[in-house]
Design a protein around this nucleic acid. Structure first.
Lengths: 303, 303
DNA sequence: CGACTTCTCCAAGGTTGCCTTATGCTCGCA
DNA sequence: TGCGAGCATAAGGCAACCTTGGAGAAGTCG
């Protein structure tokens, strides 16, 4: 088996015409070169060099091997350079998957920072809801998934914390939930609402996981919410609430990009939060571009 | 530094999708593959593989490296095959240099045998006289030189045997010298001639080394030949002798291709021989095509 | 013509790297 | 829940590699 080291040495010998000069060029001693060439000749089974005493010449097999070596070593350095570009953040692709309300706020800032800091990298964004988005991460369809989780209200779900146990979880920010009531609602002007104040109201819930958490919170407050509608589209929630069809809770982050027309937002007591995190695989977390993107996301969230 | 071994292992891993399967394909154990991949990732400085637990996936850097690997390894096997072809006598070039009378007799037979036995090899032939032909061998302009030498008559020239000391000398055959006299000469009908019988004749000598040897032989027989002409062209020698301008000695081998018109050939006593040898460099003697050609030359000479 | 330089090979020694065996762990499956 | 497959790690043995030191040969210069 011919190794790249052999070719590097052979090329140096062919170029310089002597073992000593090749050794100097390669930064090693002359016997090292001599041994490498002996090993190469043994592995090819035919002489490659002619020692005439005065100069070091190549046999036909030697010239043939040198001819191939240039292409092989060029390909090798090209590969090394491409890898180095990825490792050095001069290149690299990060496929990001985010849930909808995350992509409209966190992602654009982080993406802009990333592009400014590392222009060679390519960041792509796809939207998907948490169950599917984590699956995409595990299936290799993306490098980073933005997801959120609610704190475990009453220890009801022992698997809740273990859901991402084999993933790298990078907390980005915690997002407070606020109440949404119709403009004419009796609590529309309140400074804050107790969750039990809404016990008798019809509810408009969000995505399945949000809905499950809502139920948990309400039940731990002593009532079971009556859920009439469920949609994960925040403008739709505002529309439904504004039409007087019910009340809702909503992540504060959603307000940054959606106008609450016809509805009023009021802080809810006790405070309920959801945690927005970035997820990736342990190996991917060590990929420079992924790591940098995680940093940018955390940096954007921190402000 | 990326080594070819790394790429072979990486390709096997990428192809099979697991370390164990790659190890089976490569004929080694799974930890060996694991260590190679760890070493490769360390040398490139970035993760190449994503261990998801269920399957082994490539990172972007990994796919890039695999993409390069196919070309690099293809070049490597192409190089190995070309070398193997040369080593296996399916290819290979031998440049032969011969003195004129050798090329007309020994060489054609050996060349035909070589072509029949190893059709892939290319044998080229150039004619040159010994001092120059040996120089060509040392300068890398040929692989085999056909030359001849005379035995040391009286130990006069200590450097005679040392002339080719650093070369591989392969004896091919010994060529007896015969006398050439005009048809009407008094000794034209003799069964054999003593060299001293020609002491008073004018001589026609051959090439410088032949001439020197002729003088040595005559002097050791007690006289100094009077040399009127010198030419290394055997037809010319016959012409000169046939014209009655002198006598000569000539290698028997030359008779095989030159017709002695107008002259008679007679064995000379004491018998004088020249030895025809093939010369090559020690390293070149180990090149299969060169070695085979030397064998064919020796085989042709043996018959 | 002799000393010096340069180049090569050879031998010995120490270090490194590689491969193997053995073991533990996780995960998927029956 | 036991079982098989796959990967990681540790330890040991072995080969490969590089270095140092020295000898020999050849060219060069004073």
């Amino acid at each position: 088996m011919i190794e790249a080291r052999h070719l590097r040495v052979l090329r140096a010998v062919a170029l310089t015409g002597s073992f000593s000069a090749a050794a100097r060029e390669l930064g090693c001693t002359q016997p090292a070169v001599s041994q490498q060439m002996k090993a190469l000749e043994q592995s090819t089974g035919t002489p490659l060099l002619v020692r005439t005493g005065r100069e070091m010449r190549l046999t036909q097999a030697g010239t043939a091997l040198v001819r191939h070596a240039s292409g092989i070593l060029a390909g090798l350095t090209a590969a090394e350079e491409e890898i180095a570009a990825i490792a050095g953040l001069r290149a690299g692709r990060v496929r990001l998957v985010s849930f909808p309300s995350g992509s409209s706020t966190l992602v654009p800032g982080a993406l802009a920072q990333m592009r400014a800091a590392h222009p060679g990298t390519e960041i792509s964004l796809v939207e998907a809801e948490p169950p599917r988005s984590v699956e995409m991460l595990r299936d290799g369809e993306c490098e980073i998934t933005l997801a959120f989780r609610y704190p475990d209200v009453r220890g009801s779900d022992p698997a809740a914390g273990a859901e991402w146990e084999d993933l790298v979880v990078r907390p980005l920010l915690t997002d407070r939930l606020i109440g949404v009531v119709p403009e004419g609602h009796r609590l529309a002007g309140a400074e804050r609402i107790g969750i039990t104040d809404l016990a008798e109201e019809p509810w408009i819930a969000g995505c399945p996981r949000c809905r499950r958490h809502l139920v948990e919170v309400c039940e731990s407050a002593g009532f079971t919410p009556r859920i009439d509608f469920a949609t994960d589209d925040y403008p739709a929630v505002f529309g439904l609430v504004g039409a007087g069809l019910g009340v809702a809770v909503m992540p504060e982050l959603a307000l940054e990009s959606v106008r609450p027309k016809g509805a009023r937002v009021v802080p809810v007591e006790p405070a309920v939060h959801r945690e927005i995190v970035a997820l990736t695989l342990p190996d991917l977390a060590r990929v420079p571009a992924v790591d940098a993107m995680l940093d940018k996301l955390a940096g954007t969230a921190g402000r």
